[in-house]
C-alpha cells in the first residue's frame, strides 16, 4: 500500500518509493540516508506534532511535515 511518510504512525515501517521534493532537498535527504528503496521507520512525533522523527539507515532524522508529505512510501501488507 502506498502512503506518504507523513501518514506513517509511530513504530510503523515502510520502504521509500519516491521523493517528490526539489532536487536540492532530495539530495540532502539522500545523503542522510533517505534514499529510494531504503526502509524507513517513523520513530515518534514531537510534543507539538511538527517536525516528526524518522529513522533510515540507522540514522534518526527530524523532518517537517511539509517535506514528509512529499515522500512516498510503500507499506508492506500485513499478514
Amino acid at each position: 500500500m502506498t502512503k506518504t511518510l507523513y501518514q506513517l504512525r509511530a513504530g510503523e515501517k515502510a520502504r521509500i518509493r519516491s521523493i517528490g521534493t526539489d532536487p536540492v532537498t532530495k539530495e540532502r535527504l539522500e545523503s542522510l540516508g533517505m534514499i529510494e528503496g531504503v526502509e524507513v521507520g517513523m520513530v515518534r512525533s514531537t510534543p507539538l506534532g511538527n517536525p516528526r522523527i524518522y529513522r533510515a539507515l540507522n540514522t534518526m532524522i527530524a523532518l517537517r511535515n511539509d517535506i514528509a508529505k512529499l515522500v512516498e512510501v510503500e507499506v508492506a501488507d500485513h499478514e
Partner: peptide, 9 residues
C-alpha cells in the same frame, strides 16, 4: 527552507 536535521545518538 524546511528543517532537515540528524538527531545524533
Amino acid at each position: 527552507t524546511s528543517l532537515i536535521i540528524e538527531l545524533p545518538p
